[in-house]
Amino acid sequence: MSEKELINLEQIFEERIERDEKIEPKDWMPEKYRQTHIRQISQHAHSEVVGMLPEGNWITRAPSLRRKAALLAKVQDEAGHGLYLYSACETLGISREELYQQLHTGKAKYSSIFNYPTITWADIGAIGWLVDGAAIINQVALCTTSFGPYARAMVRICKEESFHQRQGYEIMLTLCNGTEAQKAMAQDALNRWWWPSLMMFGPKDEDSPHTAQSMKWKLKRKTNDELRQQFVDQTVPQAAILGISIPDPHLKWNEASGHYNFGEIDWEEFWQVVKGHGPCNKERMEARVGAWEEGAWVREAAMAHANKQTNKKVAKAS
């Protein structure tokens, strides 16, 4: 392809995006669009999969059968969401094996929120309420993203995820209406999860190297700071209903802007966790890689069985 032809293709592509046309896997796309999507979609898929670990920690210890069934269903959904996203990512010409490889070697990232520990039952409530709440805000914004398979996966995920947040908030509500000790447990969980939840929206706009390009390609429809503000605005009244307080002395309603002002995030901590120095980075990867390696014989046996069945059918037919 000549350079002139390439420039022409790029221009046609940009115009399609401009007109809000969806891009489908077999369409021509700039290599950088492909790579950026592989990076973001796979990061999203890995987050769903690693996200099962902190919650899985509580399945056997959920306080009732109702809570256990709900938590199991939620964790199963996360697995499903990971699969929708891996499938969307594979349409860009990368194999599932490669994607796993990138996760296991640390080349690909996943959401840092899952590098924090779940030490009490209230953490399961706080995760559903805050972490899923933040994820939903991110994901609703992605339902209209320009890459068709990603947008379709997002629509399905958003439909399924609203129960996740409600079950989490219900756990918090029950604890807050319980004994003093239970309410204190809910407050403690909010104290620990509030700031990491705000960090889920990523660096500030001025420090986000990918934002401008991602907005132009309609991979992102709103900036990190816009989404973070939306999260704060919707969550503060929910905390008030629970009767627990958000651990931010600078949090204040701003009549003029119609939004809450809030304090500065500890960006030092943010980058430390991103770089792998969070409380559970090592543990999460060990669990994930361990599960993959210990399951190798099952995958091989299933393939051997499938081949045997095929051979049998061929033998019968001939």
């Binding site: 379709r152 399924e160 299933a302 499938a306």
Partner: peptide, 23 residues
């Protein structure tokens, strides 16, 4: 609806049920 990996057709059907028709 989408795609998935499976060793054979029977497993593909079962996985499709679990992945795409949980509700």
């Amino acid at each position: 609806f989408g795609s998935l990996h499976a060793a054979d057709a029977e497993m593909a059907l079962e996985n499709a049920r679990d992945v795409y028709t949980r509700r």
